[in-house]
Design a protein around this nucleic acid. Structure first.
Lengths: 106, 106
DNA sequence: CAGAATCCCTGCCGATACTG
DNA sequence: CAGTATCGGCAGGGATTCTG
């Protein structure tokens, strides 16, 4: 990935973080290693297909690390990369901004 | 707006900022007051309809201030609210994060 | 000039079934 | 268990037209 062309990097960031799921998945992965089925439990309304696609997008963007273990039944673990962990406080910042702008606006 | 229900505020933030246009519009509005047609020039590929909808969404979220002047031809000006201005450095932070994670990942 | 309304089509995403 | 493939519905968003 990261072959995108745009003047401002925020445009590229939003290509990764836009939508309902990416930020939520980052949040749930804060807690530590999760398996595919854990993330489905964390997020009951996401479809199987979307979870697959979103995880792959985050992996391509270098936010999520995927680790597959050999053997059956299949076992795959997901973690935040170092970059992914650095993203968390930035998202928290946005959350706080929202809460403050909320009380200001009423 | 801001009648949304969710556990984490970032989820609500993303409802406003998700997509291709919201963050770009915030960026262009950094420069100061812009009219509808200015924003169309800044962003040649956005459609008339989408610009209308996105501006309204940002206005409802308290990010953008809309001012309509009486008389013909119609004249409407858009500015960042105080909250909108506080959002800018947060988006910059995301942009920097992206650039750094880029050089880390290769 | 700013924007509302309509039509229409594309692409996203859910549901389902299948593979390793 | 994790992931792929296929089909189909529905909504997002483009093009156009009309109004104040």
């Amino acid at each position: 990935m990261k072959e995108l062309v745009s003047r401002c990097p925020i445009e590229e960031v939003m290509q990764v973080l836009s939508g309902r799921w990416p930020t939520l998945l980052v949040y749930y992965l804060q807690d530590g290693t999760k398996r595919f089925s854990d993330l489905r439990r964390d997020n009951p309304t996401i479809s199987h297909k979307m979870l697959t696609l979103e995880l792959r997008k985050l992996e391509d963007a270098g936010v999520v690390q995927r680790t597959q273990f050999p053997g059956y039944p299949l076992r795959v673990e997901y973690d935040l990369t170092e970059a992914g962990q650095k993203l968390v406080p930035l998202l928290d910042g946005l959350g706080e901004w929202w809460l403050k702008s909320d009380e200001a606006t009423g």
